[in-house]
């Protein structure tokens, strides 16, 4: 149901991309917390197999730190809140505490359709750390004058890594799921931290 309503994102991309190019984008990138904005962007392109999907989870302080919310990157199948999907859990099936600089990505499970995309290889799921998200936020501010939400900033933080593997002629659509006005306190704190 979430996919159905959110898919307006991907359907609009299909139409609006025509202002820039004739074919599909080569890659779609979105942050993944519960997974709604990402599945909304991806799903309408499901059958367009040449379009690569990248879901970016919250890497927090790094996957090895244990302080993150990268469910698809580190979890295993379980049942949480009524859905069978990837869940961050310990060996006894207890759900693990999560961490992210963005409240919206702080969730120990994920929409089950992403679990399907992962298992079938349709999408690739990666993690961007708190620091990469801050860098992503800064990048968009400096290049476009836009303040993205900290959630979306994770997708932006991953973008340089992806761009390195792509050709100049290729295109990427990145879902900006929200704006950063709501995150000013977190951003101020994040940018003041000694790096």
């Amino acid at each position: 149901m979430v996919r159905e309503f959110q898919s307006v994102i991907g359907r609009e991309v299909k139409v609006q991309i025509r202002a820039f190019q004739s074919g599909d984008p080569d890659a779609l990138v979105a942050c993944v917390g519960g997974g709604s904005n990402a599945i909304g962007l991806f799903a309408p392109f499901y059958d367009h197999k040449k379009v690569a999907f990248y879901g970016v989870e919250a890497g927090g302080e790094g996957l090895r730190s244990g302080r993150h919310s990268a469910t698809l990157c580190t979890g295993r199948p379980g049942v949480l809140h009524g859905a069978r999907t990837y869940v961050m859990q310990d060996e006894n099936g207890q759900v693990l505490p999560t961490h992210s600089i963005s409240a919206g990505l702080d969730y120990p499970a994920v929409g089950p359709e992403h679990a399907f995309y992962k298992d079938t290889g349709r999408a690739v799921y990666v993690a961007a750390t708190d620091k990469e998200a801050l860098a992503g936020f800064k990048m968009l501010n400096e290049t476009e004058g836009l303040s993205a939400a900290l959630e979306s900033s994770h997708a932006l933080g991953f973008l340089p890594r992806l761009a390195k593997k792509m050709k100049r002629s290729q295109s990427v659509v990145l879902g900006l799921s929200g704006r950063g006005d709501k995150d000013m306190a977190q951003l101020a704190e994040g940018f003041h931290e000694p790096h």
Binding site: P77, G78, V79, V87, Q89, E91, N92, G93
Partner: peptide, 8 residues
């Protein structure tokens, strides 16, 4: 709850 059972 279900998850500990699934896990085991």
């Amino acid at each position: 709850y279900m998850n500990p059972v699934v896990s085991r």
